[in-house]
Simulated scan of single mutants.
Amino acid sequence: MAEEIRRVFRMDNEVLAFRFTATVSDRASLAPRERLTDPARLETWLRATGLEVAEASPADLKKAVGLREAIYRIGSAIAAGEQPDSKAVRILNTVAAAGHAKPALEHGLAGWHLTKSTAADDALGVLAADAIHILGGPDRNHIKNCEGPGCAGLFLDTSRGANRRWCSMNTCGNKVKKMRFAEP
């Protein structure tokens, strides 16, 4: 299962909300790739992040994609020094308010307890709350879009010189270095 998750999803972003936005890859290319293609894929991604839901419906998937795109639009606006779109902010706040997940410490690790009746809304609420914390918190000035070819993924630049350019050195950074090495 872990291998399948790594093959299907990018899980290398340290910010949960930005990891969620990476469920679309190659955003800046001519052919972005949707990774949340059905409710089962949403369930798999949520399980991999510790937000296990018993079952996600097509409506849950639609809500999740709407939330993901709202987070991405707000993050990209902040990275560009622009004011976030008010509709995206409304979506983010609405989803955050609908969740009823409770933080829990289990086996020495932080996790979440989701309600049985609204588990998908709770899981999406956790993602929205994480986004609000990053997008509106003290680190908001460190939000960047990846400069990797076709990527444009969001990441939090915590490097000493605030000069990080890629969402991940292992993926986008390596692609750029390989392209430079291959140049004549």
Results as ranks from 00 to 15, higher is better:
F18H: 03
V65L: 07
L154Y: 07
D121W: 03
A104R: 09
A162F: 04
L114C: 01
A119I: 07
P149C: 03
A17G: 09
T37A: 10
T49D: 02
A104W: 02
G153Q: 12
E3S: 15
A70C: 07
R35N: 10
L156M: 05
K62Y: 07
A70K: 13
A97V: 09
L127H: 02
A88V: 14
A64H: 07
E52I: 00
T94Q: 15
S168H: 06
E43Y: 00
M179Q: 09
G108Y: 02
I91C: 12
L109Y: 00
D38H: 15
W112Y: 10
L61M: 05
S25D: 03
E183W: 05
R140H: 08
A77R: 07
Y72K: 15
R7T: 10
A56R: 06
G50R: 02
H107P: 00
V8H: 12
G75M: 08
R7W: 01
D130G: 15
S159P: 08
S168I: 00
Y72W: 13
C151H: 06
T118Q: 08
R180V: 06
L92P: 10
R27E: 11
R73C: 02
W166N: 04
R165L: 07
A131S: 09
E147D: 08
A96G: 09
I132V: 14
T115D: 10
C172P: 02
N170E: 12
S159I: 04
N145D: 14
V95L: 09
R68W: 10
V89Q: 14
E3A: 14
E147C: 07
C167N: 00
E183G: 04
R90A: 15
S57T: 15
E4C: 01
L92M: 11
I71H: 05
V53I: 11
G99L: 09
I71P: 01
I71M: 04
A182Y: 08
V15Y: 06
L105K: 03
I132H: 08
E43S: 03
A128H: 08
A31P: 04
A79V: 11
A119K: 08
S29T: 10
E52T: 05
A56Q: 06
A56L: 01
R10Q: 08
M179S: 13
R19F: 02
G108S: 00
C146L: 02
A128L: 08
A98S: 14
P84F: 14
